[in-house]
Amino acid sequence: MLLLRRLFVTLVVLAALAFAGFYVLTDPRVVSPSPEIGALPAADIENGKLLFAAGGCASCHATPGQDDKLKLGGGLALASPFGTFHAPNISPHTRDGIGNWGVQDFVDAMAAGVSPNGQHLYPAFPYTSYRLMPPKALADLFAYIRTLAPVEGRAPPHELPFPFNIRRMVGGWKLLFFEGAAFRPDPTKSESWNRGAYLVNGPGHCAECHSARNGLGAIIPATRLAGGPDPEGKGWVPNITQSENGLAKWSKEEIAELLKTGFTPDFDNVGGTMAAVVRNMAQLPDTDRMAMAEYLKSLPAVEGPPRPQAK
């Protein structure tokens, strides 16, 4: 009897410790501490505008059903295996958007996936990639967004079933999958290669769609950029590594052309959400698209998950 009671007490203590451990480890400040901003020079709004295009911010945050891509009222529904997310209002509206945010709030969201009230943001918002942008770049981007028109109204709340509706769970996810460092250039590579690597993996967040994900929705590192089923539903996202099924036969110029006009080497024109990506990438200078192409051409050939045969 005594033994049983001891066992019970031990179990309760262990459970409490485990819970406390989870609670501490999944605290936003513990699992994803904010980067140090330090003193920043005056914001470069032109650079912010470029990053806004490269980051495809408008693709998710522009108010759907109207043509002005700079009205960032949010509301677009993003389907996923975990439920439906609704992109929030990121216009500079003080009540409904991010008009009351400071630079630190913006950096926290973009680089650490933490909201101003200290909650985890869902990685449907690709801070997993954006975190590669250093605080200076993020401050520029924030300054640009602040020049846009405030839009009234809030997006509907995310429609997530239990347990995905518990934001603390994201802390566990970050513990497993999130790395918080900014981009570090590789000094052995050219400046343009580094620029391309930064644009592809950071603001461009190419891997977020062009990679297969595991059961918990995290990118599988081994098949990064090697394509896979479209997480939003119907369709297949192509392999963009140097695989024969990917971009092996594409020249740098052809990759840059696709990013500018949407045309593939055989003059097909890309569809779905890639059309919006092209619209954004077309706003970058030619040198940036060529840099992205240079980086993509330098990637090893990786085979992604097998594509299902057509029925």
């Binding site: 479209d230 059309a275 919006a276």
Partner: peptide, 11 residues
């Protein structure tokens, strides 16, 4: 691109 964006899936 305008038409493919809406009426075509990724491939």
């Amino acid at each position: 691109g305008a038409c493919h964006e809406v009426y075509r899936v990724k491939k």
